[in-house]
């Protein structure tokens, strides 16, 4: 599907359908989305997390996290269970129940911690949830329409795909769903209701692709997906990164996701702090020897 013509304004075009899309960045373009011509290419965005501390019910979970994610970059965040990875994701998104006790989070200089969740999203932040919540009776198209229709899309904000390639929103949605292997009937279902784990993750990716955030936090996007699903989802996100500059913070336990996502950096969160950072090789070594091997750092 899709127009075989490729985006002309981008060097290093590769075929997204080819296996192992790990071409050098920047410039892995997306044959499937060629018609879009990436009118909304993102660049120059930066999410800065500085000395972030947060607690839940009086217990400190994040004890000073520092991370910087820029456009076109993929950062992997790994760490043992209970190290605070999901807490970080929700604190970034502004979920209630978390108390920020110190530090700062900015997106392009905007103080996210002072904004309600929906404004953080409008500012360009997206969270693909580990456990996407069922919203009975609300269909994905209606939610995306509400998300796109509210205005407030600043230069750094979400560039929800409405105008792309002259296609209607629903046409774009159907096309995206096709790319992600989501059967059309699933689009008729309420958000996440009666979806399998894998279907939910494809749905999260679909929303990411439609909403076009500047920075996406992926909280275990790989869990629930089978191998094929993982390849499709990670490949699609990779295209967003390489093709149009999405910045990614990917929380995961598994290096397999990173084989496709190709992180620029891997960070290890233990006890609410980033205890180690490195290149993709760090993920591989963790895969082999576990977090114990970081004993010194911890």
């Amino acid at each position: 599907m899709g127009d075989p013509a490729v985006t002309a304004d981008r060097p290093g075009v590769a075929d997204a359908n080819s296996a192992g899309v790990t071409a050098d960045r920047p410039g892995v373009a997306d044959a499937n989305r060629a018609g879009v011509a990436d009118a909304g290419a993102r660049s120059g965005h930066v999410l800065e997390v500085r000395s972030l501390r947060a607690s839940v019910g009086g217990r400190e979970i994040l004890s000073g996290v520092d991370l910087v994610v820029r456009s076109y970059e993929v950062h992997a965040l790994m760490g043992p269970n209970g190290s605070g990875k999901s807490t970080l994701a929700h604190v970034l998104m502004g979920r209630s129940g978390y108390e920020v006790t110190g530090g700062s989070v900015t997106l392009d200089g905007i103080d996210l911690l002072g904004l309600p969740t929906w404004k953080r999203a409008r500012a360009g932040l997206f969270l693909a949830m580990q456990n996407p919540i069922e919203v009975p009776g609300v269909h994905i198209a209606a939610a995306l329409e509400a998300a796109a229709g509210g205005g407030g899309q600043s230069g750094s904000g979400m560039l929800a795909r409405e105008a792309g390639g002259g296609q209607s929103g629903s046409g774009m949605l159907a096309r995206e769903a096709g790319v992600l292997g989501i059967d059309t009937p699933l689009l008729e279902r309420p958000l996440n209701v009666d979806l399998s784990g894998g279907e939910r993750k494809r749905s999260e990716t679909l929303q990411l692709a439609m909403l076009r955030p500047a920075i996406a936090v992926l909280d275990e996007i790989d869990t629930g997906l089978d191998i094929d699903g993982l390849r499709v989802v990670a490949g699609r996100i990779r295209e967003e990164v390489a093709g149009s500059g999405l910045g990614v913070l990917a929380i995961t336990h598994f290096a397999r996701l990173l084989d496709v996502l190709v992180p620029d950096a891997v960070h290890v969160l233990v006890g609410g702090r980033v205890v180690a950072s490195g290149g993709p090789e760090l993920a591989s070594s963790l895969e082999q020897s576990g977090y114990e091997s970081l004993g010194d750092a911890i």
Binding site: T117, R122, G150, G152
Partner: peptide, 8 residues
């Protein structure tokens, strides 16, 4: 929260 996280 879920819907708000989508910018609604």
């Amino acid at each position: 929260y879920y819907l708000e996280s989508r910018g609604i």
